[in-house]
Design a protein around this nucleic acid. Structure first.
Length: 860
RNA sequence: GCGAAAGUGGCGGAAUUGGCAGACGCGCCAGACUUAGGAUCUGGUACCGAAAGGUGUGGGGGUUCGAGUCCCCCCUUUCGCACCA
């Protein structure tokens, strides 16, 4: 340890030592309890940005903390290395995606190492390597076998700019999640994974993780799955042997149905129109709706005008035999529920609006409940089945009216009983629907895992046998940028033999969505070199589930729902034994920077020109200060608006600690006492012989240990750093010259310093290691040190300053011993001269004494 | 439009969950050391006031001995959703 703190020298030194000693490699034969700390793996764009630095600094702080607390910590890293940018680079600059990706990985790995993140590099993985994507393909085959993967033609979300298919999640809000371009629809054959099969579990199992996941993420997942309980009802079509099924959550309003409305895409529409003079008009109308939806434009805030046409057909309400006109309208969606609704204008806003526009009957069948009793129908209803005047739909639950034998029942009861009745009569029953759609994984892309099937003229679609995996990506594709998969341009890839009959066959040229890669990667870290299985189940069982996962909340519904789904599939395949892969999730806030020339703060990005290069920060201030600052600057879940002014403070803090450690370190005239068996607890020195200043420092030390330990469990890292600064300040105020210090003083200083150095390691590991070595722990790395233990006795205040209020206003303070009796405290407070002056001339009505806290004198 | 969360000094943010508002840091002010300071150290820094004291956590009301924290109304910001039957 030198007298002066030079970050660049010591950071390089310790990075080398850590690598040489394989300091952070996790071992399966380590008997200590495990802890799996995981950060979302980066896409290898070629450079880290400050958002990465934040993400990985949080994770590393936790990994260090858990190691020091005696856990066997698994802290791995890898590369989400399939995806568009590599292909864009190929199109634009003629670089092969593989070479581009590998170069980027090298560059970013170096950056990670310069940051000194304590990864187990021996477990590094990359999605684009055959030894990884082989297992994507393996999983696909398993799902195919179980009917969880299937192919169908459908209208997909299409990004016209990137010329690729997007999943529902990736086109949320009608725009491409990556480039923001308006999404359109396109008919195409696609591979899907049956995530809907797991819809119920994806909702129900939330109870297993709700304690450890942010509520906002769970809410978005619940909304995404969109579970809805209700009933279906089959309406017979008059004069045709057909039924129309509708889904409703309000079967209690069935007697208020005045029409059936079906989606433009409804398969029954042509049949309904048979023999109708309006057939052509209606079919054209339906086509117009579909077309309008496909190019649904910019302004999403504007609700589309409701458009509809009467088919001229009638449906029969099975509850009362009433005849209802069947309409086609743009506000009914084919891909939700049954693609048809019963229109109840009196009790549904949309139906109401529609009925008003087309003057359909509006019949009230639910009345509000007043004092638990039935009231008159709202808006001076005339009763009966006449249309009535209403300004809005009445959408609340209430009591049924005009509903035959169900009149008088409460909605909640009627919902159940009507569904049961429908089921008994065979024309309906209770039903649950979900908004979530199956996961389309086909991409007309090169840079992804090839979907392992072939098409044979004789045998049709044939899965590639497991023994032939991986289906390798070729190295010589042409990148035209036309939207056709580049794999189609590689005959050696395209043409193959049918695995079944040996006849010439063609390979599938679609590749998998990259979210497949990231759905299970953290299981692969457990056993990254296994070439017989995705991972050994026993080894995975030792490490998983992940104890703490850290990443941006932009993945709240995509990655995080896919990985939950994947885990459930793996469970059903017998690979894991639990339902949920991640116990605790932290969604860290974005790091934003001002966009030059504007007043907007946006996530740092190259295209906006508001990026900050971590390497420049490291060069100017050191990795330790950069990491410390980014964790100190804001609570981990908040947005962090980048500013360089604060980072100087972090450097100053580290330098001050350095100076104090240097001053007190052994070797400086042998100041510190030799290490004692019981280390910092040193019972014999405990209470006697300590000066007031020494006792105050000990107190601060133990208070800080308690606070930091507590804050780590809550991941309150910013207050954690503040606590360390306070301890360092207290140490600075401990005004004792090392050369002339008493044994007791030396002991107390040493205790404070060692605690400080250990607790600093999670934030600024290089300087911590250097100081640890400087303190004489030359044998081992700080890695194997023990987290200090707070002694509550030592942390206790010797005296308390109790605020005294008069009528709730602070008037004075009294200094008392912590175990003063309530009566004594009360007396002391009342006797205080300042307090007296405020009581004077008034009558004391009441005295509130909160032990250890405050006294409030109430006067009149 | 619907839903959720949040509004605390010049700034980032603390506040043991109903008990001293503003910890810690940035910035700023003054001083010291310096040929020099964008280095370092010391002190100060919510607002008004010379002081005593008063005011103060988006605004208004309420509950309470006591409210940044709980309740009601309003305003603002951010995020999510987008006709989901």
């Amino acid at each position: 340890m030198d007298e002066k703190y030079f970050p660049e020298t010591i950071e390089e030194k310790w990075q080398q030592r850590w690598a040489d000693e394989r300091a952070f490699e996790a071992r399966e034969d380590d008997p200590r309890p495990k802890f799996y700390a995981l950060e979302m793996l980066p896409y290898p764009s070629g450079y880290l940005h400050m958002g990465h630095v934040r993400n990985y600094s949080i994770g590393d702080a936790l990994a260090w903390y858990k190691r020091l607390r005696g856990f066997n910590v698994l802290h791995p890293i890898g590369w989400d290395s399939f995806g568009q940018p590599a292909e864009q680079a190929a199109i634009k600059r003629g670089i092969q995606p593989r070479a581009w990706t590998e170069d980027n990985i090298v560059a970013m790995r170096d950056q990670f190492k310069r940051l000194g993140i304590s990864y187990d590099w021996s477990r590094e993985i990359a999605a684009h390597r055959p030894e990884y994507y082989k297992w994507d393909q393996w999983f696909f085959l398993k799902m195919l076998e179980r009917g969880l993967a299937y192919k169908r033609t459908s209208a997909v979300n299409w990004c016209p700019k990137e010329e690729t298919v997007l999943s529902n999640e990736q086109s949320s809000g009608g725009v491409c999640w990556r480039c923001g371009t308006q999404v359109t629809k396109k008919e195409i054959e696609q591979w899907y994974l049956r995530i809907t099969e797991y819809a119920e579990q994806l909702v129900a199992d939330i109870k297993e993780i709700e304690a450890g996941w942010p509520e906002k993420v769970l809410k978005r997942q619940r909304d995404w799955v969109g579970r809805s309980e209700g009933a279906y009802i089959d309406f017979k079509v008059k004069d045709q042997d057909e039924k129309i099924r509708v889904f409703t959550t309000r079967i209690d309003t069935i007697f208020g149905a005045t029409a059936i409305v079906i989606a433009a895409e409804h398969p029954l529409l042509p049949k309904l129109l048979e023999g109708s003079t309006l057939k052509d008009d209606l079919l054209q109308f339906a086509e117009n709706i579909k077309a309008a939806r496909a190019i649904k434009t910019e302004d999403l805030s504007e609700e589309e005008e409701k458009l509809g046409m009467n088919t001229g057909r009638l449906a029969i309400n099975p509850f009362n035999g009433e005849l209802l006109p069947i309409w086609v309208a743009n506000y009914v969606l084919m891909d939700y529920g049954a693609g048809a609704v019963m229109s109840v204008p009196a009790h549904d806003e949309r139906d109401f609006e529609f009925a008003q526009k087309y003057t359909l009957a509006i019949r009230q069948v639910i009345a509000p409940v007043v004092h638990g009793q039935q009231s008159e129908p709202v808006d001076q209803a005339s009763g009966g089945d006449q249309s009535i005047e209403m300004k809005h739909a009445f959408v609340e639950y209430g009591v049924l009216v005009n509903s035959g034998e169900w009149s008088g029942k409460l909605s909640t009861d009627a919902i159940r009983e009507l569904a049961e009745y429908a089921a008994a009569k065979g024309f309906g029953g209770g039903a649950v629907t979900y908004r979530i759609r199956d996961w389309g994984i086909s991409r007309q892309r090169f840079w992804g895992a090839p979907i392992p099937v072939v098409y044979c003229e004789k045998c049709g679609m044939v899965p590639v046998p497991e023994k032939d995996l991986p289906v390798m990506l070729p190295d010589n594709a042409e990148f035209s940028g036309t939207g056709e998969s580049p794999l189609k341009s590689v005959p050696e890839f395209l043409n193959t033999a049918c695995p079944k009959c040996g006849a010439p066959a063609m390979r599938e040229t679609d590749t998998m969505d990259t979210f497949v890669d990231s759905s299970w990667y953290f299981f692969r870290y457990c056993d990254p070199r296994n070439d017989g299985m995705p991972f050994d189940t026993a080894i995975a069982a030792q490490w998983t589930p992940v104890d703490q996962y850290i990443g941006g909340d932009s993945h709240a519904v995509m990655h995080l729902i896919y990985t939950r789904f994947w885990t459930k599939v793996m469970r059903d395949l017998g690979l894991v034994k639990f339902n949920e892969p991640v116990k605790r999730l932290l969604t860290q806030g974005m790091v934003t920077n001002r966009v030059e020339g504007t007043n907007e703060w946006k996530a740092m990005s190259k295209s906006l020109g508001n990026g900050v290069d971590p390497d420049e920060m490291i060069e100017a201030f050191g990795a330790d200060a950069t990491r410390l600052f980014i964790l100190f600057a804001a609570p981990v879940e908040n947005e962090l608006r980048w500013s360089e002014t604060g980072i100087e403070g972090a450097v100053r803090f580290l330098r001050r600690v350095w100076i104090m450690v240097y001053k007190w370190r052994p070797g400086y005239a042998g100041i510190l006492p030799a290490h004692t068996e019981d280390g910092m607890q040193a019972g014999s020195l405990r209470s006697q012989n300590f000066s007031d200043a020494a006792r105050a420092l000990r107190r601060k030390t133990h208070q800080t240990i308690a606070r930091v330990t507590d804050d780590f469990e809550k991941l309150d890292l910013n207050t954690n750093v503040a606590a360390l600064m306070e301890l360092s300040n207290a140490l600075g105020e401990f005004n004792v010259e090392p050369a002339s210090a008493s044994d007791a003083d030396r002991f107390v200083a040493r205790e404070a310093i060692e605690a400080l150095v250990i607790m600093l390691a999670p934030f600024s590991p290089h300087i911590a290691e250097e100081m640890w070595e400087g303190l004489g722990h030359e044998g081992g790395l700080l890695n194997s040190a023990q987290w200090p233990v707070a002694d509550p006795e030592l942390a206790k205040q010797e005296e308390l300053e109790i605020p005294v209020q008069v009528n709730g206003k602070l008037r004075s303070r009294v200094i008392v011993s912590p175990d003063i009796s309530e009566a004594d405290l009360r007396e002391l407070a009342l006797a205080d001269s300042k307090v007296q002056s405020f009581i004077d001339g008034h009558k004391v009505v009441k005295v509130i004494v909160v032990p250890q806290r405050l006294v409030n004198v109430v006067v009149k």
